[in-house]
Design a protein around this nucleic acid. Structure first.
Lengths: 107, 107
DNA sequence: CAGCATCCTATCGGATACTG
DNA sequence: CAGTATCCGATAGGATGCTG
């Protein structure tokens, strides 16, 4: 994928945050509310747990989502959008609209 | 990069069009007007000609840019945005603003 | 349940040299 | 000038199995 880690261009900087096989979908699901690890996994098959973990970690590292681990067994971890994550909604909405109108509509 | 070729999600569909190491920059330069191959290359070092060709081909295949080859030697090829490419400007502007405010500002 | 460890492959971006 | 043709290394994403 795009290696935009060294981004000096603001567009590329934004791309680096949201490009990733499942990140857009994760952000979209979390926009609806707090979700558990398993809930996210089941809504976007056939993602593997390893990859989901990776994407979640990157989103957390970038400050877009928050991870809350509840004590006790069985384990229970909840993910939700941070304010920064929520602030992306405008951008994601624009991208979604453009994609619907210009890509998905074509076929 | 993100493998969003099989995108069913409109956001991922849009991502598939603009994610790529240099695509955002290329689109940005072409937004200012028609540019020749060499002009684009010189404005974004140190891109290699092979990679630039690839990115331009993908952008053309996706209908975002237009390639016009003028007859005669030396060769002279001009690239410009199509209407579809121009229609992306809103999205790119949002991404640029968000990146400036939330990523580049942090350091 | 929510990971981590390991291994594997496809793809991407890049370096370099050659061509019409 | 504007590409092709090769070769290469890094890495993103995935399959599978184990663990607290």
């Amino acid at each position: 994928m795009a290696n935009n880690k060294d981004a000096t261009c603001p567009i590329a900087a934004t791309l680096a945050y949201i490009s990733g096989r499942w990140k857009a979908a994760i952000l979209h699901h979390l926009a609806a509310g707090t979700r558990r690890f398993g809930e996210i996994a089941v809504r976007m098959p056939p993602i593997s747990k390893k990859v989901l973990t990776q994407q979640l970690k990157e989103l957390e590292r970038d400050g877009l989502i928050r991870r809350v681990q509840n004590p006790g067994a069985p384990m229970r971890v909840e993910y939700s959008l941070t304010d920064l994550g929520k602030s992306l909604s405008t951008v994601l909405k624009e991208m979604s609209d453009w994609g619907k109108a210009n890509v998905l509509a074509k076929k």
